[in-house]
């Protein structure tokens, strides 16, 4: 009973996440790649993404805090964040990163700072959603249920 409830919540959350484009089909593919041989694959990858993203966000904050902004460096960080978010399927983070990079090319410090804030928001949004999702997943498995497959 509880399992079914957990599963329904899982499905609802997933639907919301995709509907809001917090995650995209890339994440779906990662879910499909998770199998018996690598039951923790999603968790593993998501954790890596968190570490990577937070490190980059810190770097970006530092870089944009400078009197003289090294836009090249900023751009490199953003580019890297873009790659990571794309790989995980964090669509909105990636989209902000694209806009962020154009600001870097323009050497637009204010724009960069603005985008950094956006990226932070989007990142924590996807992070919380992912954490919720993984938590649900863990509970379902703990209850002996199976993870509903997403379309």
């Amino acid at each position: 009973m509880e399992v079914a409830c957990l599963q329904r919540r899982f499905i609802d959350l997933t639907a919301t996440i995709f509907q809001q484009e917090i995650l995209d089909s890339q994440f779906t593919q990662l879910q499909q790649l998770q199998d018996e041989s690598s039951p923790n694959f999603i968790h593993e990858v998501v954790s890596l993404f968190f570490q990577e993203a937070e490190k980059l966000l810190n770097e970006l904050s530092k870089a944009l805090d400078q009197q003289i902004v090294d836009f090249k460096k900023v751009d490199a960080h953003v580019h890297r964040l873009k790659g990571s978010s794309a790989s995980i399927g964090a669509r909105r983070v990636k989209d902000v990163c694209i806009a962020f990079r154009s600001c870097c090319e323009e050497n637009n410090k204010d724009g960069c700072i603005q985008h950094l804030q956006q990226v932070n928001q989007e990142y924590y949004l996807v992070k919380s959603n992912l954490e919720d999702l993984l938590k649900l997943e863990k509970q379902i498995l703990a209850s002996g249920g199976s993870i509903p497959t997403m379309k």
């Binding site: 990662l30 990858v45 890297r80």
Partner: peptide, 16 residues
Amino acid sequence: DDDVTCLRILEHMLQR
């Protein structure tokens, strides 16, 4: 790839 996330995902995909 210096992006470990990406690297891990690629590794898994390639293994697949």
